[in-house]
Design a binder for these strands. Structure first.
Lengths: 167, 167
DNA sequence: TAGAATGAGTTATATTATATCATCTGCTCC
DNA sequence: GGAGCAGATGATATAATATAACTCATTCTA
């Protein structure tokens, strides 16, 4: 049931050790869920693992297709429920502008980050961007607005892709 | 064909003169389209007008329902094409986190604004927030990211609604 | 007048997401 | 042990959002 999933994706061409990266993310998730007394069930774990296969944002129905070999009975609701759980626990981000989901690197803590989405390699980089958040807070102050949740998403070219295309 | 549309909505309880506000928006749109040599056709004008009926973000299928009395043949594509046009011309914003659309107050110019979305009255306030944009630009610099388009959307309570609920 | 460009009509379908009710599983309390 | 509860999942259906692809009409202009 907890098959490590076939490498259905092209690993990111970055130099980072992705296997380690995924391993950390899953371990952190497991620990956090224990601490919080919530259940990282088999399905939820599998969905999280599938999301972490790459640093690209993944669509819900893509996850559904990929999880079917492991969970024959999987239906849209299966995926959406798992996604809800993972979002609530701060383990993944929903990328609003793509209707897609990406693993959260700062698992479970601060969950409102700047997302930099590369149009070319499609990878999503998450940044804390405290100065941006600070400027936002000041703007809310001026506007008399009480913020509950933020989505700060930027599309463009990541450093690597911009470098390649300008050569 | 250019019926001013029945008041299907509750006008915003703000003190502003909404009729004037809509009038300005439409006039500006008309002028801009002439300047740019693009056609603000009857359908496009109607959709823009419907969007401006309130300061809430409107769903595409809501627009479809509302435009049907005026454009009997209207289909989803009718609306989505008009929306595409209006977005391209910078006359409306797409609110990514709601899959909805709202009139743009800074028509046609700077089109990347901070959107403050009230969970209670549902109105969307648009702010230029140059300090936020500046902080974003600096963050892109640090990340080596080339930004093409931004969505900065915040959900919460507007001043008015926060005031009311805290009384 | 042919042909390109643009907008709109029409039909079909793809994609994304939720509602609802039934069932199962593990736990607690008696 | 069994009743009852809560949380998770199964199963079915359908809602909501969005696009594709082809046609036709209009306008402009070469």
């Amino acid at each position: 049931m907890k098959t490590p999933a076939e490498p259905l994706f092209t690993p990111p061409p970055t130099t980072h050790n992705h296997q380690q990266c995924v391993h950390n993310a899953l371990k952190t998730a497991e620990t956090l869920c224990v601490e919080r007394g919530v259940q990282l069930t088999s399905i939820r774990h599998q969905v999280l693992e599938l999301i972490w296969e790459s640093h690209k944002a993944v669509k819900a129905y893509e996850l559904l297709d990929r999880i079917k070999p492991l969970q024959n009975a999987a239906k849209p609701a299966t995926i959406y429920r798992a996604l809800d759980f993972l979002i609530t626990q701060g383990l993944i981000h929903r990328v609003e502008s793509l209707n897609a989901f990406v693993g959260c690197r700062c698992s479970g803590r601060q969950h409102e980050q700047l997302l930099l989405i590369c149009k070319q390699c499609e990878e999503v980089e998450e940044r804390t961007a405290s100065q941006v958040m600070q400027a936002l807070a000041e703007e809310f102050q001026r506007a008399g607005f009480t913020a509950h949740s933020k989505a700060v998403e930027v599309h463009g070219l990541c450093q690597r892709c911009a470098g390649l295309s300008s050569e």
